[in-house]
Amino acid sequence: MDTKISKLVVTLSVIGIISAIALSFVYQWTTPFIEKHQLEARKQAVRSVLPEAEEFQEKIINGITFFEGFDSSQKRIGVAMIAKGPGYQNIIEVMIGVNLEKDYIFGIDVLSHEETPGLGARITGQQYRKNYQNKPFGDYNVVKRTPQNDLEVEAISGATISSRSVAKIVQDAVKKINEAYGGGV
């Protein structure tokens, strides 16, 4: 009986060790690529919400990382941040870029989400994100028709909850940016 049990343990341990070694190589091999994609995605996201910026700098205020965008003459043209909030299924992560001089949002980009494919997942689409382009700061109203004033956001049909969640995340993020940069700076 003893020899039998030891054989079982040995077999499983050998498989486990081989698997761990093989996977650590896979991990080492793929990690640089995965990190590169993540960095690239982040840069892309900052660029898409601060379109006129040439250079970026990270700055931590109140424990939040902000990305400041500068144009070619080193003038700060906007600030971006990553905000998170609950969506329909799970946490949604959004990048928001704002113009602090004129108090409006340049645009938003959804970094990660788990919304329903084909419905809530359309928060990543151009049509929904367009809602936030050049939008003044304020409390947003999600409506199921074409927006009639500046503070209205058009919901994605069949995904009102996701649409509302993003509006809430953006709204809160704007407040955080205003707090960190003292309103009209």
Partner: peptide
């Protein structure tokens, strides 16, 4: 050791 997550969870 994130790469051992699936293996260890199933065990």
């Amino acid at each position: 050791l994130p790469f051992l997550r699936y293996v260890s969870f199933i065990i």
